[in-house]
Amino acid sequence: MNNGTPLEDYVISARNLRAFYGNQEALKGVGCQVAGRRVTSLIGPSGCGKSTFLRCLNRMNDRIPGFRIDGDLRIMGADPYAKGADLMKLRRQVGMVFQKPNPFPMTIFENVAIGPKLHYGLKGSELEGVVEEALKEAALWGEVRDVLTKSGLSLSGGQQQRLCIARMLAVRPEVLLMDEPCSALDPISTAKIEELIVALKERHTLLVVTHNLQQAERISDYTAFFMFGELVEYGQSTQLFGSPVKSETQDYVSGRFG
């Protein structure tokens, strides 16, 4: 559980991280250190490896046959790929929200309750408290407090995505991974999620994959630009968007390709 103590400066650090799908090299030696309690955007053209990188962090890539990884990765000081590493604990610490909202076909309450119930054995009023808190944190409580027993699928797309965020928050993760969390949403819902992302960095470390450069600029403290499986440039968003060092970055952020 997250007790609010200050964290070390770098929550995630990767050194010469390489990832393969079969023979295809998706990450060609990526090195970076991600600051705690900040928002970091991952940008780059499709197939550049940004999602692969994100999915290395909670080992979601494990499900893909032929996937393997090489190099050094630390998340809060521990190697998630170490032999005997606790995968479920990793995923409790490193939550993930997907491109398409994927609420479970159960009630709104159950959607949020399933994590704390199964992980921490909470029930009764304690569980209700955690659910309420998570829904509040995800800025959804006001909209659903009276309809908690309705199906999660009855919500609008944007609400569903916030429900998924609440579901993740209820497990009390430190790191939040978001894989294009707004790309299936309308502009108003997108604005709400963006606001939420900025609010969440007070207590969490966020990594957000996005194709929307303005969004990356708006929400993130740091931005990482990926291309062809390499981390081309990584730095403060103001700097990366304002005066990028590399010419590829310059071309990409000015919309010349990608």
């Binding site: 909670n58 479920m88 939550g95 993930m96 997907f98 399933i114 199964l118 992980h119 998924c164």
Partner: peptide, 9 residues
């Protein structure tokens, strides 16, 4: 994926 990402076994 949603279930696994929550840390469910």
């Amino acid at each position: 994926e949603g279930g696994l990402a929550l840390g469910l076994s």
